[in-house]
């Protein structure tokens, strides 16, 4: 039964796409990956409109201060188990907005992130690769590092930094 559920989870990731102050480049590419040419529905990915239906939160942009409480709220509204993808250089590290007075330096300053997809903007292939790798990993009994750390209570405090970016969690471009 556990195996079956793991298979179901990794075969049906519904994504919620959230713009946290991106320049729109990454958003266009994210939507691109759902269009006929790349067609993420092949992997069971559907784009959902409400956080209640979603499994994977795809964030783009460096998270503006305006967006911060909203991002937290939307993250909390998603039902468990949930995963977060930081799509684009801005979402990973602040990118061109680094040290900007009105922005954070990436999504992981606000909520825990499971997968970083680099690129400015990301290419649809990179996003697909990121999602597939993320699901492979989370399928293995929820072994994604965030899930492990969550259970140890590291992210109870949302001010705590969310792990370092290691090679394992960066998708190929």
């Amino acid at each position: 039964m556990g195996k079956l559920l793991e298979w179901a989870r990794s075969a049906s990731p519904w994504i919620l796409h959230l713009n946290c102050g991106s320049c729109n480049g990454c958003d266009i590419e994210t939507l691109d990956s759902l269009m006929p040419r790349y067609d993420l529905e092949r992997f069971g990915v559907l784009k959902k409109d409400t956080p209640r239906h979603a499994d994977v939160l795809v964030c783009t942009g460096p998270v503006t201060r305006q967006m911060e409480p909203r991002l937290e709220r939307i993250y909390e509204q998603m039902p468990e188990p949930k995963l977060v993808v930081a799509a684009g250089s801005c979402a990973a590290s602040g990118g061109v907005f680094q040290d900007c007075y009105s922005c954070h330096d990436g999504v992981d300053e606000v909520i825990p992130v499971d997968m970083y997809v680099p690129g400015c903007p990301i290419s649809p292939e990179a996003l697909i690769d990121g999602l597939v790798r993320l699901l492979e990993e989370s399928g293995e009994g929820g072994k994604a590092s965030r899930l492990r750390e969550r259970s140890e209570g590291i992210f109870e405090d949302s001010d705590a930094p969310a792990g370092v970016i290691d090679d394992e969690h960066v998708a190929d471009t």
Partner: peptide
Amino acid sequence: ADFLKLLSKE
């Protein structure tokens, strides 16, 4: 798969 996944979610 969708049905099963939704059943297993919170």
